[in-house]
Write a protein that binds this DNA or RNA. Structure first.
Lengths: 198, 198
DNA sequence: TACTTGACACGAACGCTGTTCGTCTCTAAA
DNA sequence: TTTAGAGACGAACAGCGTTCGTGTCAAGTA
């Protein structure tokens, strides 16, 4: 997304955008809030906090992935839009009613959001490279990317790097989605463990 | 970091850099590998895997933070430099010797690195804004940034957002360093839990 | 109705970016 | 002594975010 392209889409010049928005950053933050509005929030049920938090993270991840440039804007921003606050209240309430102390719930929310956005941003970088390489199929890109890495690791001297070279197949076994799930569940299980024995 | 500034530092023109490097991306990856070389790796001790992994994550975070532009380059890259491989072998070996299955150790390593780089990158974005705002003191920036957020949250209607408005002080209590520690320890505790009962 | 005000639109330009091309120089091998 | 080749580099291209000065047009006021 560039200001010139946005302007072109609106049949106007780039300068005109600055009558409504003070910078590209502000525009991206507005888009970020709009995008958060696409997330459907269920009625909070503290008994199912883990399940609901997981669903929220998955949906946020999905929504950020489908609006690529937004992930970066979301990273160092605590947004102040209506939808952001709505979503924040939902997550924070869920953690508190699950039994977390307010201070720890604040930390947990912050880390969960960083994880989701961080992974989505990494995904968007890959997506960008894919387009730059002129590849359309994600599977083909994944094979290309991972294949090159695997070839390089296979060529390493086994005596100096015995562990990496021995388990190359395991290193490249999981794709982006599975990696995201693993980290998310690890995070949620960790929270649960801290709840049961504080 | 821009190619023109790098060239200027070397008393030459930007075009000359392309005789040694095919793109800015490649240069950043080379820098990334150099930066990873600054990390001191201890002799791996499986009995203290958690402690050693923590120290590694802290050092990597520190090193990425002090070389700001590198974090972004590191995000969607599985680097192939000598130091990267050395560090990768260290982490992977530690996880395996701690008792993890190769497949899971691969996932764990990937997520740990994503977390460290993601947090470092977010920090670098804040640093960039700090410089853009002409502020030199991180504490002053933090107060400015967090203060604005807090003011906004305090102005929210309490009946619609009871949880957020009630615990504003807890929401802004911890700074970036403490947030990083919390997520890191949550991650490591999670790994430990999976080791004891697979 | 005539005049003023203010919001919005926008062409042109500034200074920056990564990258490419063609030309030049200078070293090392034949 | 000649030649091949690597490196250096000025100039330029296309793109970026942003600003300035000017223009337009509708609403409010006298």
């Amino acid at each position: 997304m560039s200001m010139r392209r946005v302007a072109q889409e609106l049949d106007t010049g780039p300068a005109s955008l600055y009558a409504h928005v003070s910078s590209k950053e502000e525009l991206l933050e507005l888009v970020y809030d709009r995008v958060l509005g696409e997330i459907r929030l269920p009625e909070p049920d503290p008994a199912r906090w883990k399940e609901q938090l997981r669903a929220y993270a998955l949906e946020m991840h999905l929504v950020l992935g489908s609006h690529r440039d937004v992930a970066r804007a979301a990273l160092a921003t605590i947004p102040t839009g209506a939808n952001s606050v709505r979503a924040g209240e939902f997550v924070y309430r869920l953690l508190l009613e699950a039994g977390m102390a307010p201070r720890e719930a604040s930390l947990a929310m912050d880390r969960l959001i960083l994880y989701v956005i961080g992974d989505a941003y990494e995904g968007s970088l890959h997506h960008g490279r894919m387009r730059a390489a002129g590849i359309d199929d994600p599977g083909e890109y994944f094979e290309n990317f991972v294949g090159q890495i695997a070839a390089y690791y296979r060529a390493l001297p086994r005596d100096r790097f015995p562990y990496l070279t021995k388990h190359i197949d395991d290193l490249i076994a999981d794709d982006g989605e599975q990696r995201f799930y693993y980290g998310l569940d690890l995070f949620l299980d960790g929270l649960e463990a801290r709840l049961s024995k504080p």
